[in-house]
Write a protein that binds this DNA or RNA. Structure first.
Lengths: 256, 256
DNA sequence: CTCGTTTTGCGAGATTTTGATCATGAATGT
DNA sequence: ACATTCATGATCAAAATCTCGCAAAACGAG
């Protein structure tokens, strides 16, 4: 197994279980305890988990970015993700049904949504549903069911896929973990990939949100080929050659 | 078990019960009393609890916010609901799957859940899913899909019902809006009633949570007859004749 | 293929954690 | 006041885990 894949699976285990023992990980992954220790130590360095005697425990940081008020946004400079999110919301037509998949950039769209009349938001993100429910009374929200991934607050699995079948979606917004003009959209975790693929497939038109840092992110998991992208919303700092390549592939690129 | 996890569970027990004996903790956690003492001493050192002869008690250090009389009432009620919630969590057996329906009292159960090992929580409440996701990495959460009722942050409708069909539920906890020993469980809104009925039907055993104020609440919507109730958790101030009537109807009544 | 680098597995010695024992101090009943 | 019971802290040995160095294996470039 690729060492990168092993680390990804290791992190998955930690996040799923909350805590794991070195011995168990070694057995599950089929490697020695030394290797597991080295992996855990490195990921502790990178802040992905916390190393403790005998194993490791998951980090439980605050994953919910508290939205700043609309007024404040109008006065201050919008940050990169905020600008991208605002431009993305411009693409929504009144009366349509849109899918927001879990992710930091899509979450930024929430505060802009009330400006579009009569829309329905479908989402697999508990964070997004919670944010809309507590801030807006006009936006209709439909939550896809599924297993909660604690770290990301997004929903996965069979129930999510099944719920998708009963919903008509005009426009889907997807927060890319990484974006390669040749390879396609990258996902962060294998566990989420299948659900992401299903959500992407369910939409007529796919809008991908990716700030310029996403172009240099590499990952082993591809959730969709480039051809599936309808529109890309990114920022001015996106690599010019990547933008050109995507436009050549008949993709509308918007730079906020 | 990882020592880190053991400490976390230990702290949960202390906070849940308010106070706890060293002997009991040793038995529950499956370690020696020496280990428990060391753990308790360290957590006393860190200010997470207070060590006393024979065991430990929870810290009840209230940061004093400016309170309107309204908020003050809410806090007082919260304490009552908190006790009911704690007793309700005691009913959960390790390894089981429980349903938490949306409601203020069921939401109080969240902070106590990590003390029960290896449970799966099924819920139609975005607030509960959000709360568990941001505070605990050990509790498995499955969210039923559906339309978001913005005011309550609970999910309703066809998708919710459909998702229920794919889940096996050992124990369901329901926050009653009103409770009449003759008529049964009352719901607040007609829109929620059907989904509530379906959730109640899906469970083998139904636990109803209702503080004493719920006995005088009147509503036109009945979501379930009294006979459907398996266990009622309420407080000491519940009307004696109502408690007697329910016990006569073969319902287990717990007064926190 | 050969060389240099990286990754991995192994084992010795150091460190941490744990459970048991016991003298001492604290709570309780008479 | 006294005796009795129980909890405590200290100490020690055993077990589990970690660290570190080293060598074998895997990998990539030339």
């Amino acid at each position: 197994m690729l060492s990168e894949k092993r680390r990804s699976r290791l992190l998955d285990h930690v996040r799923r279980k909350g805590s794991v023992r070195v011995e168990d990980l070694a057995e599950v992954l089929g490697v020695s305890v030394s290797t597991v220790r080295r992996d855990l130590d490195e990921m502790d360095e990178r802040g992905l988990l916390r190393r403790v005697h005998g194993g490791a425990v998951a980090i439980t940081d605050q994953p919910v970015p508290v939205e700043t008020s609309m007024a404040e946004r109008a006065v201050h400079n919008l940050d990169e993700k905020g600008r991208i999110a605002a431009r993305a919301v411009d693409l929504i037509r009144p009366g349509s049904t849109v899918l927001l998949t879990g992710g930091s950039t899509t979450a930024q769209m929430v505060s802009h949504l009330p400006s579009v009349p009569d829309i329905t938001v479908v989402t697999n993100s508990v964070a997004i549903a919670h944010a809309i429910g507590t801030t807006s009374a006009t936006v209709q929200v439909l939550v896809l069911g599924g297993l909660l991934r604690n770290a990301e607050l997004s929903l996965l699995g069979h129930l999510t896929t099944q719920a998708l079948a009963d919903v008509h979606i005009d426009l889907a917004f997807f927060s890319a973990y990484g974006l390669d003009p040749a390879y396609g959209i990258m996902g962060a975790h294998l566990a989420e990939a299948e659900t992401d693929r299903n959500m992407i497939t369910a939409a007529k038109h796919l809008v991908v949100l990716a700030d310029h840092t996403k172009f240099s992110q590499r990952s082993a998991v591809r959730v969709a080929p480039v051809a599936r992208i309808g529109t890309l919303v990114t920022d001015d700092a996106a690599p010019a050659e990547a933008v050109a390549a995507l436009r050549a592939a008949d993709i509308t690129v918007i730079q906020a």
